[in-house]
């Protein structure tokens, strides 16, 4: 029996609709579920007071600090390295075997499980270099983890700047560096910023690489050599050790809101940037 194409179409598209609705429903359910369980417990006190009894009661203030400090330091370390490498690869060398190897290496490392970075950071920074479980070990490990992403996204962004813009720069008497600084980088900025924001988001959500390098101290750190706990790690410990599911949900809600804020800020920056250029 041959089914008429119009009937196949109706069947196929109904399947698509059902699967899509199902998919979106699951994903929306996750956000709504966490919010419904967590949002009621979020308050000023929860955000800005210290945890009590291992996190069973009290707030999450130290983990808030950890969540800001670790990704920030990681970005400060990784951005100059990553963007500098991308500029070098795209503008200062010609395509050859070495650049291809670097690119393949960056691609591979971008896909390496974060636990491997955790393993490396734990043995290398924490143990071998005797930095201990500390902010510095954690942020260095995170910097290693996000470096490949920053290199690749910056490279893509720089490559997307039309070649004719560079020609204009050179023809108007700009040196290579002046062309890079005045024309290439400003026009690649939205892409570079997106890569950085993506990396911040990834660092905030990271648990495996952080828990073994920054530790899980709930005290407010005095220096970069003190251990710290991020929100993700805090959430993991609360959830895994069954300390308090109420506080776990609340922490998860704060985490999702932070990611949401980062995405919104990224969109805002991009839109402002595009509007400014074409106004």
């Amino acid at each position: 029996m041959i089914i008429h194409p119009r009937h196949t179409q109706i069947i196929a598209i109904s399947m698509l609709v059902i699967l899509t609705v199902f998919t979106l429903a699951i994903l929306v359910f996750i956000i709504l579920f966490v919010f419904s369980k967590g949002l009621p417990y979020i308050s000023f006190d929860f955000l800005f007071s210290n945890p009590e009894d291992m996190g069973k009661a009290g707030g999450i203030f130290p983990t808030l600090i950890g969540t800001i400090v670790l990704p920030l330091l990681a970005i400060i370390i990784a951005t100059p390295l990553g963007v500098g490498t991308a500029v070098y690869l795209t503008e200062y060398t010609r395509e050859n075997r070495i650049t291809r190897i670097i690119r393949f290496g960056a691609d591979c490392l971008a896909g390496i499980p974060s636990i491997i970075f955790g393993l490396f950071g734990f043995i290398f920074f924490v143990t071998t270099l005797e930095m201990g479980w500390s902010i510095i070990s954690g942020s260095l490990t995170l910097a290693f983890m996000i470096l490949p992403t920053i290199i690749r996204t910056s490279e893509e962004a720089i490559k997307a700047v039309p070649y004719s813009y560079r020609e204009v720069g050179f023809s108007l008497g700009a040196t290579l560096w002046q062309t890079v600084r005045k024309i290439v980088l400003p026009n690649a900025l939205p892409g570079i910023v997106t890569g950085i924001m993506l990396s911040i988001g990834r660092s905030i959500g990271e648990t495996a690489a952080v828990i073994f390098t920054a530790g899980s101290s709930l005290r407010i750190p005095n220096s970069v050599f003190d251990s710290i706990r991020t929100m993700s790690v805090h959430f993991y410990i609360l959830a895994r050790e069954g300390i308090s599911s109420k506080n776990a949900y609340a922490t998860a809600a704060v985490l999702i809101i932070s990611i949401l804020l980062i995405n919104l800020v990224t969109y805002w920056i991009m839109n402002r940037f595009i509007a400014k250029k074409t106004k």
């Binding site: 813009y165 024309i183 026009n187």
Partner: peptide, 12 residues
Amino acid sequence: GMVFALPVPLPA
């Protein structure tokens, strides 16, 4: 100085 075949204003 040089003027190219297609006009290339910089996005500014």
